[in-house]
Amino acid sequence: MSNKNGALLDIRNLSVEFETAGGTLRAVDGVSLSVDAREVLAIVGESGSGKSVSMLAVMGLLPWTAKVKADAMLFQGRDIMNLSPAERRKIVGKDIAMIFQEPIASLNPCFTVGFQIDETLKMHTNLTSRQRRDRTVELFEAVGLPNAADRLSAYPHQMSGGQCQRVMIAMAIACDPKLLIADEPTTALDVTIQKQILDLLVSIQVEKDMGMIMITHDMGVVAETADRVIVQYKGKKMEEADVLSLFEKPQHPYTKALLSALPENATGDRLPTVSDFVFDEAPQTGARP
């Protein structure tokens, strides 16, 4: 399934290194992945396994201390690695959009949410200000924010975390992106809100025919949303499979560990944790078609 021609996003052999005071840190190590249009790919892995960093590399959002290397990074067949910054900005935010883990911190506290969405539209479309306003109201309604017209002039601190994440989603889908990257979109939210946001993301993905990359720790989220899963550990890709086969026959011990950490799989009176399992770090290559 991967490396198929005509994939929406096709990353080959991506590595990211950070120059730190303590030497070079390899946060992502030779990861290849691809997403098709209309497909949902989940990336799972424990904290620090380089999930965010690899996606930030795609977006070109890493700080200057990061060195990004890849054999190719094709978006709609075009290598976005070698684009000039200005050309890349035409794609980022328009055709590829990203939402982040901390919705409240991700919105600028000094500007109204309406302004922050309007700015995206202004950047990437030729709509008039009237049309942009209508579009923003439409987007707010699409992400389930009632009284959309009034909310345009609200500041982020006047909204809850869930509402802020809806605003972030509205902002991300403002220009009808082909690919939406969601980096743990529900981790910082209340359990009750998490489900709503996930449902919203899935329904938008279906409705808009987007490809989506969903980063998460949560196998439950994977089961609910994803078509295909990549398991990442310490910057390396451990396993890649479609959801059903992954849940039925996890190949890599680390994946097994993640799965058994699901509450449904709890045995006895204690949840197993990943560290209960001992495994070698070699990726299970070629185990899947």
Partner: peptide, 8 residues
């Protein structure tokens, strides 16, 4: 980072 992610 969000502002940059919008392609500004």
């Amino acid at each position: 980072r969000t502002a940059r992610s919008k392609g500004l």
